[in-house]
Amino acid sequence: MMFLDPDFILSALRTGTPLMLVALGVLVAERAGVLFLGVEGVMLTGAFFGVLGAVYMDDPWAGVLTGTLVGMVAGLITAALVVWLPTDQVVMGLALNIAAIGLTSFLFRLAAGDLSQMTPPLNFTVPESLADNAFFAFLFGVPPLTWLTLVLSVVTSYLLFRSAPGLLLRSVGQDVKAARSAGIDIRVVRTVAMVIVGGLTGLGGAALTVGWVRSFSDDITAGRGFIALAAVYFGRWYPGWTLFGCLLFGIGESVAFRAQMLGGNPHLYLMIPYVLTVAVLALTGRARAPREVGRPYEGN
């Protein structure tokens, strides 16, 4: 069966993993009340530095780490702009995206000679003894970063909804006044949150380049950050549903890859994931975002 074979599922997971990581980041940001429109740019930055780290240190995990760390720095810069300055979060986010395209394209040019090689692969190898077993072959075929994503989602979900810092963070996102009167320093919380968010987003970028296609090109994210953002809205700000949304997009794109072989105009099939995203968003109706998302906090 064309659509239910392990290869198809693996393809959907490869496509979905970077989205899931980035969506987790966006989710945490919005839960803390920050509208993270700069997500595309931070993802792109993580994607570039991931490749850079992997090539120069000749180790894909070093690349993943570099992408994450640079993402954290980008998160900190985002926080400086949207949390500490009373700027418009929409305008700032879009400006960051454009800046990121410029920065990565410029650096890519400087390093182009070194980056023409593929980054080392980031995969598990199936032990010889298990290679013939289809099930194990599938398990080992799942990219390591997908496993990491699953672990991170469980951890994020627990922290957000079961732990004290999670409740405090969500309070900041829901009602600044209530949080303040509980003695919470809104800015510090959002800054710390944005560093974590940046880390997740940078990791998502690295998952796209180092974990999947092993190279970089200008604007390689091509709107994936925004799709992750849409997935968060689709998931009504809950990790489980959000990840499901990302996976849905991954499945949609994988269907498009295959549907092409069924004949017809490839461009029509390539629309499938986008149509799917829009349809799903339209069908889920208007969900309510954490109340403080997008509102500048000006303190007193």
Binding site: T15, S215, S217, A222, E253, S254, F257, L270
Partner: peptide, 9 residues
């Protein structure tokens, strides 16, 4: 321009 899509195809 799309590397990911070319890869999966």
């Amino acid at each position: 321009t799309g590397i990911p899509r070319a890869r999966e195809v």
